[in-house]
Computed example of a mutant assay.
Amino acid sequence: MARFTLWLQHHRLSAFFVLAYAISWSSWPLYAAGLMPQMEFLSVGPLVAALVITALAWGKAGFKAWGRRLIRWRVGWVWYAVALLLPAVMVLVTGFTNVAMGAPLHGLGDLTWSGLLTVFAVRLINPLDGPVGEEPGFRGYAVPLLQTGRPPLLAASILGILVAFWHLPLVVFGHLSLIGLPSTFVITFLYVWLFNRTGGSVLLTMLFHNSQGTFTVGSFGFSRADLGRAELIYFVVLLVAASATIFLDREAWHPAPRPAVGLSPRR
Rank of each mutant, 00 (worst) to 15 (best):
F4D: 13
L8V: 03
Q9S: 04
Q9V: 05
H10S: 14
H10A: 14
S14H: 13
F17V: 13
W28A: 13
P29G: 05
Y31C: 06
G34Y: 04
Q38T: 08
Q38E: 14
E40I: 10
S43P: 00
L47P: 10
A49I: 08
T54F: 10
G62E: 12
A65K: 09
A65N: 12
I71P: 00
W73M: 08
W79F: 11
A83G: 00
L85I: 14
L86M: 08
A88Q: 11
M90A: 02
V91E: 09
L92D: 01
V93L: 13
T94E: 10
G95C: 12
V99T: 03
M101W: 15
H106Y: 11
T112V: 11
W113L: 15
S114C: 01
G115N: 08
L116H: 00
T118Y: 07
V122A: 07
R123H: 12
P127G: 05
E134T: 12
E135S: 09
F138H: 14
F138Y: 15
Y141H: 13
P144H: 14
L146A: 04
T148N: 08
P152S: 10
P152R: 10
I161C: 10
V163E: 14
W166T: 05
W166D: 02
H167R: 08
V171S: 05
F173K: 06
G174N: 02
P182K: 11
S183W: 02
V186K: 03
V186I: 13
V186R: 00
V186T: 07
I187H: 05
F189I: 12
L190Y: 06
L190S: 12
W193S: 00
W193L: 02
W193P: 02
N196S: 03
G200C: 09
G200Q: 05
V202C: 11
L204N: 01
T205N: 10
F208G: 02
H209M: 10
N210G: 06
Q212D: 11
G213C: 11
V217G: 14
G218M: 09
G228K: 13
R229M: 06
A230Y: 04
I233F: 12
F235I: 04
V240C: 02
T245I: 08
F247G: 01
D249Q: 12
D249H: 12
R250E: 00
R250H: 03
E251Y: 10
A252L: 11
W253V: 01
P255I: 13
P257I: 06
P259D: 04
A260D: 03
L263G: 01
L263S: 01
S264L: 06
R266I: 12
